[in-house]
Amino acid sequence: MNTIITDLGLIINAMLIATPPLLLAALGSCFSERSGVINIGIEGMMTIGAFTGAVVAYFTGNGWFGFFCGGLAGAAFGVLHAVVCISFNADQTIAGTAINFIGPGLAVFLCKAMFENSSDSPALDTASKLPRMFTGVFKAGSFGYNVIATYPAAYLSFVLVIVIWFIFYKTRFGMHLRAAGEHPEACETLGINVYKVRYICVITSGFLAGLGGAFVTLSTVSQFRPSVIVGQGFIAIAAVIFGKFKPQGALVGCLIFGFCNGIKSILSQSNVVSPNLISMIPYVVTLLALIFFVGSSRVPAANGKPFVRSK
């Protein structure tokens, strides 16, 4: 019985580390997609955020400042995506693909330029990382410790779900952004500036994805490596489609991934099943959940279609 509780604690602990970066990026993706701009470049934005976060924290010794700058770096790529997609009406999938090459490429390129041709940034000391919270409440290793002693940025990501849900469904701006993704022409007739709404949303999506990336390097990994993000941006996009483009739905998608990651970390200690088969669990579970419970998810009607204002 005791081992079950301890294991459960460990699963939750692993889940609270794996979920926040996905969740932050997924919330960003919600903003962009719901306003009508496909953002497949989340992966690249996370990677540049991961790099910037680690490097800024390394030089300033301030994890929170690094975290914020990681977001800004992601936002810079958001600006690029917005200009190309919204002002120049480029194909959004193509632009996102480009960001997925430029973001990780630039991160490793700058890393090598700054740290004597090393593709890894120097390891961060504990003081310049993001701190853990509530470490003194329970004894280390106990169930309670594993569950609540986690990163404040993790708590922040969960709080953001509520905040963003509120923005989407209870504010005027939220209504505008959802309308821009469904019927931009009608929005313009009503005097909503679709370009402005989409610009704000795409840049926000970059900022949140950058925060997600910075969370990885500033909490668990403690340095930038070319492989820190690999695939997480795509998983975040998958979680958003899974959650039918709603922030609360994306939360469920991310929690499934986080939970399966937790199970993975427990199962792989026992060595009974091949770790590679265990690693497949999150992806298989997501597919099965889609097939049997979730079903199709309706893409916002104007998603991917460049909006050209009529003269």
Binding site: L80, V84, F88, N89, A90, D91, I94, A95, T97, A98, I99, N100, F101, I102, P104, G105, L106, V108, F109, K112, A113, N117
Partner: peptide
């Protein structure tokens, strides 16, 4: 790498090419 240039510049060039193709119209 032989001339101490990060090979990742290739990825950046390729990505930039795609951006310019995307806005070629």
């Amino acid at each position: 790498t032989m001339v101490n240039v990060p090979a990742e510049v290739v990825n950046i060039i390729m990505g930039t090419i795609i951006v310019f193709i995307a806005v070629s119209h």
